[in-house]
């Protein structure tokens, strides 16, 4: 019944304690503090699941309604770029996990290296995303801003659509590609925003890690940030097949 560490830690022996400097006054033990912050991070990730949940719901509904438009829309995305981004992100998750391991085993230079690699891989992801976005802007595939249907009404004029073998769509269905791109930008944009925040925090952590933080036994910050980073990775693991790979055989 007792998942409260304070129970294990009776009041009797609270008289003399050597508190590590990073222990906050209202926790009885370091273990309790670590447990609490870790649990808080998980709860925060719950809110993130539900936040993206609204977007996934919208995606599933419109994909069912406008399947041809979603297929044609997905043909506008580049699998090499998307695939490369998946590689970068998965690898960055690995380097992050290794970073946590380095912190746990008190390897300072290893930690700095792992965090720096994660940082670079994350930046690489955003760089490729920028290339993809700018291509969409050039083609007027950004919803709202002079959205252009040309690639879908006349696929022969569009190399990507032509390569995928798209046939010209009826105007009615072609217009629904805008819904696809709305969701594409909302979902990847929201994901990229999380990446940017993550990279910011990574920069701060590299700075601290070089000064020797996190490798003295107090690793919760690195650990909790790792959870966040892996969560962002998981979102991408779903976004990649849902947005890029709807159907490549048609």
């Amino acid at each position: 019944m007792s998942d409260s560490p304070a129970i294990a830690h009776g009041a009797a022996d609270s008289a003399v304690h050597e508190h590590p400097p990073y222990q906050r006054h209202h926790f009885a033990t370091m273990a309790q503090q670590n447990d609490a912050t870790n649990f808080a991070m998980w709860l925060f990730l719950l809110t993130e699941i539900m936040f993206f949940g609204g977007l996934f719901t919208a995606y599933l509904i419109y994909r069912n309604w406008y399947y041809p438009a979603f297929v044609a829309g997905s043909h506008q995305l580049s699998i090499p770029l998307g695939g490369l981004n998946t590689l970068l992100l998965i690898t960055s998750s690995f380097t992050m996990a290794m970073g946590v391991w380095c912190a746990e085993t008190r390897r300072k230079s290893g930690l700095v290296l792992c965090l720096t690699l994660t940082f670079i891989l994350g930046l690489g992801f955003l760089g490729i995303k920028t290339i993809e976005y700018s291509e969409k802007i050039e083609k007027h595939h950004v919803p709202g801003f002079h959205y252009s249907l040309q690639s879908f009404l006349d696929p022969a004029s569009d190399p990507a659509a032509k390569a995928a073998g798209d046939k010209p769509m009826a105007l009615d269905m072609a217009r629904h590609t805008e819904v696809y791109f709305s969701l594409y930008f909302a979902m990847t944009g929201m994901h990229a925003l999380h990446m940017i925040i993550g990279i910011g925090i990574l920069g701060f952590m590299i700075f601290r890690a070089r000064a020797g933080a996190y490798t003295t036994g107090h690793v919760t910050f690195v650990e909790n940030f790792g959870l966040y980073w892996h969560f962002v990775d998981i979102i991408w693991i779903f976004l990649f097949p849902l947005l890029y790979l709807i159907s490549r055989h048609q």
């Binding site: 719950l46 809110t47 993130e48 699941i49 539900m50 936040f51 993206f52 949940g53 609204g54 977007l55 919208a58 419109y62 950004v142 919803p143 709202g144 801003f145 805008e178 819904v179 709305s182 969701l183 930008f185 909302a186 929201m190």
Partner: peptide, 23 residues
């Protein structure tokens, strides 16, 4: 568990109002 769903709904309304996405 509930509030984030409101948050995303509001974000989508704001995007719809400002740049006119079609959700």
């Amino acid at each position: 568990l509930g509030t984030p769903v409101l948050a995303i709904a509001i974000v989508l309304v704001a995007l719809e109002r400002t740049i006119g996405i079609g959700v």
